[in-house]
Amino acid sequence: MTKTKLMIAGAVAAVLGAAAAGGAAWAHHAFAAEFDGKAPVLLRGKVTRVEWINPHAWVHLANVNKDGTTTAWMVEGGTPNTLLRSGIDRNSLKPGTEIIVRGYQSKDKLCRPACKANGRDVTFPDGRKLFMGSSGTGAPRDGADASER
């Protein structure tokens, strides 16, 4: 391969690498980009599924409404590592576990395919209350994040 072709191949690889990194950066957003700090939610229901993925884990639950019907919610938490450090793991969030989540609703409020919220803390049936959010994301200082007290 000639020196010119090597330089072009290197430039193409650099551009593709930058594009891939930009996509990852876009996926990890600040709180205010998607959630409304003036729209608190209190969700009660059973866990239906948990996605242990980066950059944010998602807890899916069937929220029991005041009229007895249920609404599907997707609650964004911190990274899987953040949740593990808080004491939340695959065994504590099994499908069927009844939980209470305090958080903030997404700005779009469309609820398609499910309502979305950013979770601040989760309360388990035994009364344990654990922080489930991400620190330093711009979420309201609501006392849930011990590092912000």
Rank of each mutant, 00 (worst) to 15 (best):
A13H: 06
G96V: 06
A33C: 06
N54P: 06
A19E: 10
M132K: 04
R44E: 06
T48L: 02
A72E: 05
G96I: 07
A117L: 06
E76P: 04
S86Q: 12
T79P: 03
R85E: 10
A57G: 09
T4W: 07
H60V: 02
G78W: 08
A18I: 14
G103Q: 03
D108F: 14
D121H: 15
A14T: 12
W26M: 13
T69K: 08
N118R: 11
V59R: 00
S106E: 13
A39N: 07
P140C: 07
R128A: 14
P140T: 04
R120P: 00
P113Y: 04
I88Y: 07
N65M: 15
T2D: 08
D126Q: 09
G103C: 04
R102S: 13
K116I: 06
A24R: 12
H56N: 01
D67S: 05
I53Q: 13
A117R: 02
G37N: 05
A24P: 00
A32F: 12
K66I: 11
R112W: 13
R85C: 05
G127F: 12
R141K: 14
A114G: 02
C115S: 09
R128V: 11
T97N: 06
R112G: 07
D142W: 07
R149I: 04
V15A: 15
S92C: 08
T123I: 08
P113S: 01
N63I: 05
L61K: 03
A62I: 09
A13D: 00
R90A: 15
L43Q: 03
P95A: 13
A27K: 09
D67W: 08
G45N: 03
G96A: 08
D142H: 05
A39C: 01
F31Y: 10
R128L: 11
M7I: 15
A62W: 10
W26A: 14
M132P: 01
A32H: 12
I99H: 01
S134H: 02
E98D: 12
T4C: 00
D126N: 14
R112C: 03
A14S: 12
T137N: 10
L6G: 06
T137C: 10
D142K: 01
R49E: 09
A117K: 05
A57E: 02
G37I: 09
A144N: 02
V64K: 11
A24H: 12
G127K: 12
L16W: 10
K107L: 15
G10P: 00
V12R: 02
K129L: 05
Q105C: 03
G119W: 10
D67L: 08
G87A: 12
G136S: 07
A14M: 14
I100Y: 07
P140Q: 03
W26E: 10
A18Q: 05
F131D: 00
D121Y: 15
S106R: 13
G22M: 13
R102P: 01
A146T: 02
A33D: 14
D89N: 15
G77P: 01
D142L: 03
E98H: 11
A72T: 03
V12Q: 02
G96K: 05
V15C: 12
P80D: 02
V101P: 01
M7R: 14
H29F: 10
